[in-house]
């Protein structure tokens, strides 16, 4: 938390390494205890969130909305149903609400109280999203936060910050970049970043596409 990601992937500092190995031992001991008690089937400790669920799901939702106006209307009206139509549903995505970025409005999503995040469309949250700097500052200094991600907004753009304090989960529909009109939904999905769907970045066209 306060140590940022350093404590989670531990480069460098000896005291962090010691604490991490303590943690690792505790987790292994707890796992073997729960297996011994018959509470946990070791075969069920699978890697769903590394293999099946991740931000490519959300990128496909965005690309479909960019290329299909009826789908976009549905997505903004009933996010859960429109997203489930592409096969993405389940834990931490039960009640989806999609907010649209435009030339006038920029949306940013945070969970100041914990780490609420739309798992089915974005996977598990990055370390920075759960960190104290982001959770503390997103609501009081959103423009400063955006600048740290390289996102400069004009003063006349309205910034809307969505604090995920209940069981609604937010997905930002980023602005479609100008110049990619010839791209298919499949191609567009490849340029939609996770960070743009949290709202900290805009989607940029790769140089080769912009020149095309």
């Amino acid at each position: 938390m306060s140590e940022g990601r350093g404590n989670e992937h531990g480069h460098g500092h000896d005291h962090d390494q010691d604490r991490l190995s303590d943690t690792e031992l505790r987790v292994r001991a707890l796992e073997s205890l729960l297996v011994d008690k018959g509470m946990v089937d070791p075969a069920a400790l699978v890697e769903t969130y590394e293999t099946k669920v991740g931000p490519r799901n959300g990128a496909r939702v965005v690309a479909r909305a960019w290329t299909d106006p009826d789908y976009k209307d549905w997505l903004l009206r009933d996010g859960s149903a429109a997203i489930a139509d592409l096969g993405y549903h389940g834990r931490q995505g039960e009640n989806m609400y999609v907010v649209e970025n435009t030339a006038e409005v920029h949306n940013l999503v945070v969970c100041t109280l914990c780490s609420c995040y739309p798992w089915p469309v974005l996977g598990l949250p990055p370390v920075w999203y759960k960190s104290a700097p982001y959770r503390s500052r997103a609501v009081i200094d959103p423009r400063g936060v955006l600048r740290e991600f390289g996102t400069e907004l004009a003063d006349d753009v309205e910034v809307r910050v969505w604090d995920s304090t209940a069981e609604l989960r937010y997905l930002v529909l980023p602005e479609r970049p100008a110049g990619g009109e010839h791209m298919t939904a499949e191609e567009l999905a490849t340029i939609v970043t996770r960070n743009s769907m949290i709202g900290v970045e805009k989607v940029a066209l790769p140089a080769r596409e912009a020149a095309a």
């Binding site: 609501v139 959103p142 423009r143 003063d155 006349d156 753009v157 309205e158 910034v159 809307r160 910050v161 969505w162 604090d163 995920s164 304090t165 209940a166 069981e167 609604l168």
Partner: peptide, 9 residues
């Protein structure tokens, strides 16, 4: 900012 806002559920 006079334009910005925060939504909470």
């Amino acid at each position: 900012s006079a334009r910005d806002c925060v939504y909470a559920d």
